[in-house]
Design a protein around this nucleic acid. Structure first.
Lengths: 204, 204
DNA sequence: AGGCTATGTTGACACTGTCAAGATAATATC
DNA sequence: GATATTATCTTGACAGTGTCAACATAGCCT
């Protein structure tokens, strides 16, 4: 029982799986992740994971959920820097969002990609973490509208869908390598920020 | 030789495969498409497709390429309606783009998703069709900038990446069912259009 | 000590993409 | 028109996948 490697019960297989999976996803992407390779990584038989996750999808959902928790915390931190002017925070938020996606492309893909969302495969657990994250986006948008940073005409939800859509779209074009690459990141972020903020200037 | 069903050589297996695949993708999505089911659909053995496509990826690329050809033609048609004011054309373009994505979600996913682009799996053939399509987006952006519809500050390429990113992002949020659904489409499009065009108003 | 439950194991199944080798038909060549 | 070449299609095989069923082990509670 003393030597960790030689015991029958792993001890903390659940987190070991999550760790290994996260590492593998980060390296090779969601698609090439197999439960069997994963089990081997951790030194356990093929079907052992099924005692901790109902199926592959549940495991992926758990990893994505952790990603949302982290991102939500980061977003909150940026948004709540009250010593910084709203416009600067807004700009920083955009850079951080795209930066997060560019730094963890595979995780971002998992969090916001069709693998989990398209066929209603997202776990209730995942939804419970993700939706507050989405709603926070709307909250921030409302604040930026009230601050005069963003145009006040559209409903916050609509505007949030569009601004977030922009960030999401840029992130995806980058990640998937479609007509955009990492060297454009900062310029793209600034262009987006300018576009949004200029749109709010009052005119008579 | 007379009865089509009973001949050894299919006749036009290549297009039959493309047709069947396109139909299946439209119905069930790219992910659940299997070459074997496809072969069965067409009434041919599992490995017959390999005489017409190097591998699954090549077949998918061919389908995506056809999608790009179609979309490029549509975009061109909208853009070249010279009797219509530029602003209206711009707005229509946005609606059509999102509409196209919403009407053919699975094809859109294939065309712009990681399946083909992420791991450099896109065929040279596909790239040859897709890149002009991307570049057309930049061309249009430049025109809209010169027409005063879009802000003239940023480089056309950067601005195109951002505006296209917005459309792409909205499309993906819709398709993947992330905090947006079909009933929001028109409002989202108009919000985006307003946002972009308002940003171009001169101010002193 | 006994039994219950959580956790691990091997075996099996249906499914996938793809390669190799052989069969057949259309086509080109003499 | 006979023959050879080539395009096309077939079956067989392999390694890989997710997941279920049946069984084994160990930890914990009474």
């Amino acid at each position: 029982m003393s030597i960790a490697a030689s015991r029958y019960h792993h001890g903390d297989l659940r987190s070991a799986l999550l760790d290994a999976a996260t590492r593998r996803i980060d390296k090779e992407g969601v698609d090439s992740l197999s439960l069997r390779k994963l089990a081997e990584d951790v030194g356990v038989s093929r079907t052992a994971p099924y005692h901790h996750f109902a199926d592959k999808n549940t495991l992926l959902s758990a990893i994505a959920a952790e990603g949302f928790r982290q991102w939500h915390a980061t977003a909150r931190k940026i948004f709540e820097q009250e010593d910084m002017p709203a416009a600067a925070r807004f700009r920083q938020f955009i850079h951080e969002y795209i930066g997060y996606a560019a730094d963890h492309p595979q995780l971002y893909e998992l969090m916001f990609g069709r693998t989990l969302w398209q066929a209603q495969s997202a776990t209730d657990d995942l939804k419970a973490v993700a939706f507050p994250c989405f709603q926070f986006q709307v909250q921030m948008t409302r604040f930026w509208q009230m601050s005069g940073l963003l145009p006040q005409g559209p409903e916050p939800l609509r505007l949030a869908q569009v601004t977030w859509g922009t960030l999401h779209g840029i992130a995806r074009l980058l990640i998937d390598g479609i007509y955009a690459d990492r060297s454009h990141i900062d310029q793209m972020c600034d262009t987006a920020a300018d576009l949004f903020m200029q749109a709010s200037v009052d005119r008579e």
